[in-house]
Design a protein around this nucleic acid. Structure first.
Length: 580
RNA sequence: GCCUCCGUAGCUCAGUGGAGAGAGCGAGGGACUUCUAAUCCCGAGGUCGCAGGUUCGAAUCCUGCCGGGGGCGCCA
């Protein structure tokens, strides 16, 4: 059975044909084999036009040479040349039948694992201590989680790190507010019911009370000086916040645990060394009292060189220092080959500069560092939903609303018992939120609307879950699941279309991984579910009048579809219930 | 001012330099005593922001312009 992308396999064969026919060496990718939108054509090869000039031949002659030497009779019908030199490829029914039958024994659905596993550190989620997670954290969390799942599926080692905002000057203010609230160091009986309220109250006091400001300042000094009582209070605050995050991660179905937390404080011990190394390398300059690196190629609005400040004029460190120390840590101590940062696109320049500085410093050499940016979630007014702009939407409220909405629909439509309804509501509601986000191009902003988040028609998770539930229902009714080796017989166009689509799974996964673009997978899964429902309507499986052969064959197709949908959704962090 | 991303059907969005640019939603027409209608089928709907350029071929690459978002020194 074929492993991987059908188009790549055809490309390989075209490359061989060109070598034997014309002595030309090209890679499979350069064969330009693409799925075709032409009626009745599965793939098309566009290589003839691209090579014609280089070979000083007419495109149709190159195409003719490809066709004559293409060794693919097992896989495709006799290729036809069309238009200026397109080679149209139609997959043979027998080949499709064999592939479909073979897939039944492959729980990876044709997707191969990498032969060169990498070790990838991925920065995701990264909420701030003493602040409630809001919709802004949604994207980093679920996009990061999906990328993590995709990379692991591909056979890579992935180490998530949750870069918690757990250090810095605001903690003086926050700890003093804790003290005012009667917290005692070392006691774990405290809790904060409203993290946002806590933060706002501290901030308000800070803005109004000079004595409090002074206490906060002293508290920062104590914190950074390692004062035990202060550290104990700080830990209490971090742990309290972490418990809030855990609840959200649990609801969201993100695999992040407290072990994945590498907050800013974690890198604290490395900051001085990191900065000292940069100084020793001669990369730094003092400018306006701040210690800076000036990576080449960046300028500010006056046209002057743009600094990356790694130590503030007051001697404190900032996020550039931490980010450099982070790279240094993961490369040196953890020996990762890749560093991914799932952080909003507004920080694109920051990361470009940090990476540039890290290369200058030798922290990054062969490693691949990439800012996997994502667009902002906008309000209906088209402006970024910001925590301080008033229009805060707590993440937990968003998720609860989605689950409640799903619960209402489920109660209306189904007769499952209460427990089952509650379980389904969570799977459907959370899935809808995740899918609504993941199905957008990662890098683009999108406007948040409840309508979109809760939609259950068209390209939505519910559509996919429903398609799968219908399949599971049929398989349950059928009594026995067709075993490996069950012959697949394709007679109807809808059957054939479904198999062709199912064979596209590896290509979709590859595309999603290659560009860190989960939406490429959602698009594919939606097309697959849609192709299936067309098949479902056109091709009865268990109904009277279906021959035993067709019944078994169609059960295989249903089974394969279910596995593609369930596996695909799982790579996005979305569950697919048996019944719906 | 500079950098960067975006502009595709009424709306929300896909689109790997390849052949009449595709979905969903909405609006119109049709299909249920259901293998689960949270579904399917049919037709309508487009100066791919504008103007040049590169190319055999441009929604896609380059340049300029228009419109919008974001970023541009001590918050992260």
């Amino acid at each position: 059975m074929l492993q991987g992308d059908v188009g790549v396999e055809l490309g390989r064969r075209v490359a061989v044909a060109l070598r034997t026919a014309l002595g030309v060496e090209i890679t499979p990718a350069e064969a330009l084999v693409r799925p075709s939108t032409r009626e009745g054509v599965d793939y098309q090869c566009n290589v003839a036009m691209s090579l014609a000039k280089k070979l000083k031949k007419a495109p149709r002659d190159v195409a003719q040479a490809v066709v004559e030497h293409l060794d693919s009779a097992d896989m495709v019908e006799a290729p036809e040349i069309a238009g200026p030199g397109f080679v149209n490829l139609v997959l043979r029914t027998e080949w499709l039948q064999e592939q479909a039958a073979g897939l039944l024994g492959d729980d990876r659905m044709g997707a191969s694992a990498t032969e060169v596993p990498r070790r990838v550190a991925i920065d995701l989620s990264s909420p701030n201590v003493a602040k409630e997670m809001h919709v802004g954290h949604l994207r980093s969390s679920i996009i990061g989680d999906a990328i993590m799942r995709l990379l692991r599926f591909a056979g890579h080692e992935v180490i998530p790190h949750n870069h918690l905002g757990d250090w810095g000057t605001p903690f003086g203010m926050l700890i003093e507010h804790l003290v005012d609230e009667g917290w005692k160091a070392g006691s774990d009986s405290h809790s904060i019911s409203d993290l946002n309220g806590f933060y706002v109250a501290a901030r308000k006091k800070f803005d109004a009370d000079p004595d409090f400001v002074e206490r906060a300042r002293l508290r920062v000094v104590a914190l950074q000086g390692g004062d035990e009582e202060t550290l104990a209070l700080w830990r209490g605050l971090v742990e309290e916040s972490t418990r809030h995050f855990e609840k959200v991660y649990e609801l969201l179905g993100i695999g992040l645990t407290p072990e994945d937390i590498y907050g800013e404080s974690f890198y604290n011990p490395y900051l001085a060394d990191t900065v000292a190394e940069l100084e020793a390398e001669g990369l730094t300059e003092v400018s306006d009292g701040a210690l800076c690196v000036f990576p080449p190629g960046f300028s500010n609005r006056e046209g002057d060189r743009l600094p990356l400040i790694i130590r503030k004029s007051d001697g404190g460190y900032n996020y550039a220092s931490t980010d450099l120390a982070t790279i240094r840590y993961w490369v040196r101590e953890r020996e990762v080959t890749d560093l991914l940062y799932v952080v909003g696109t507004p920080q694109a320049q920051h990361f470009t500069m940090v990476f540039a500085a890290a290369r200058q410093a030798g922290y990054l050499t062969d490693q691949h560092a990439e800012h996997v940016g994502f667009g902002s979630i906008l309000g209906e007014d088209g402006k970024t939903i910001r925590s301080r702009a008033g229009g805060t939407l707590k993440l937990v409220d968003l998720l609860t609303e989605a689950v409640d909405h799903a619960a209402a629909v489920i109660a209306e439509r189904t007769a499952f018992d209460a427990d089952e309804q509650a379980r389904l509501a969570k799977v459907v509601g959370i899935g809808a939120v995740k899918y609504a986000d993941l199905s957008n191009d990662r890098e683009r902003d999108y406007v948040f609307t409840w309508e979109k988040m809760l939609a259950k028609e068209g390209n939505t998770s519910v559509y996919l879950q429903y398609a799968n539930a219908r399949i599971r229902s049929i398989l349950a009714k059928a009594g026995s699941v067709p075993g490996v080796g069950t012959p697949v017989v394709l007679t109807e166009p809808a059957e054939r279309a479904l198999v062709v689509k199912l064979l596209g799974f590896p290509a979709a996964v590859d595309a999603a991984i290659e560009a860190y673009a989960p939406h490429k997978l959602t698009t594919y899964l939606y097309e697959t579910a849609s192709t299936f429902t067309t098949f479902y309507d056109a091709c009865p499986i268990l109904k009277d009048g279906t021959s035993p052969e067709a019944r078994e064959s169609r059960l295989v197709l249903a089974q394969l579809t279910s596995r593609v949908l369930v596996l695909g959704l799982s790579l996005l962090g979305i569950d697919a219930p048996e019944r719906l």
